[in-house]
Amino acid sequence: MAEKNVITSMLDDLSKEQPIQTALCLGQNLNPDHHQLIQWTYFSVTEFLMLPFTQRYDLGFVLMDTDEFKDLAGIQKSQLLVKLRDLMAKRIVVVTALKDEQLMRSLGFTQLIDKTKHDQDFALWQFNILTYKHVPDWFNSKFWANPENWNKFRW
């Protein structure tokens, strides 16, 4: 598992960007002592996959380098992350082994820690819906259709 001080410092940084009030944790019951303002909820993998959508959490934290995830196939990991990304959490942080890089990139996650900077077998990934896709310059009303023909022709 990733060092606790890396996780707690990362939580501090994420809290500065956007306030975190509710958090969901998968893989290990993680409840940092100094983050008492965050309401943590822990689920096992099987509980989470059967969990109906009742609320959206501010943060989803997944520790995929634990024993609970070692028996899961790639499709089950993908289902879990997609459900978490699309329904359950606004922002997701995932700790994985280096071998899961292709899965994480294919689901739209961005890497937080460069794997060449450390010797351990873990990578830190995030997904934030607010920064997932940058709006291109051409995607605004200035460049739509032919404004000079508005109210002249019916399309």
Rank of each mutant, 00 (worst) to 15 (best):
Q55G: 12
L59M: 05
Q39F: 12
L124F: 04
R85A: 04
N151K: 06
E68R: 09
L84M: 09
V135N: 13
P147Y: 09
P32E: 03
T8A: 07
Q28C: 15
K77C: 09
N5F: 14
G27V: 01
L63I: 10
R85F: 02
V45G: 09
H118C: 01
G108F: 01
V82Q: 12
D13A: 15
Q102Y: 04
T41K: 15
L103Y: 00
V95I: 12
Q21L: 10
Q36H: 13
D137W: 09
L63Y: 08
N128A: 04
I113M: 10
C25E: 14
V62G: 03
L112E: 00
R91E: 02
I113E: 11
L37W: 14
T54H: 11
W144H: 10
Q55A: 11
L124N: 02
I129E: 05
V62Y: 00
F43P: 05
Q39C: 13
Q18G: 15
Q36W: 12
D58H: 09
D58W: 02
T96E: 07
N5H: 08
I113V: 10
N128M: 04
A89T: 07
T131G: 00
Q28W: 12
A97D: 13
T96N: 00
A2I: 13
Y42M: 09
K77A: 04
D12F: 14
L80C: 06
Q79K: 14
T66I: 07
D100Q: 03
E47D: 08
P136S: 01
I20T: 09
D67Y: 13
A123M: 00
N29R: 10
Q28P: 06
D114G: 00
F61P: 03
H35I: 08
E68K: 07
L107H: 00
L59G: 01
D86L: 04
S9F: 05
T54W: 06
T41A: 14
W144P: 12
G60V: 05
D67Q: 15
L107S: 01
F127W: 06
K16L: 11
F153N: 11
L107K: 02
K90G: 05
D71A: 11
P52L: 13
K70H: 08
D86F: 06
L130W: 07
T66C: 09
H35V: 08
D137C: 07
E3N: 14
I113W: 10
K115L: 05
W138L: 03
E17S: 08
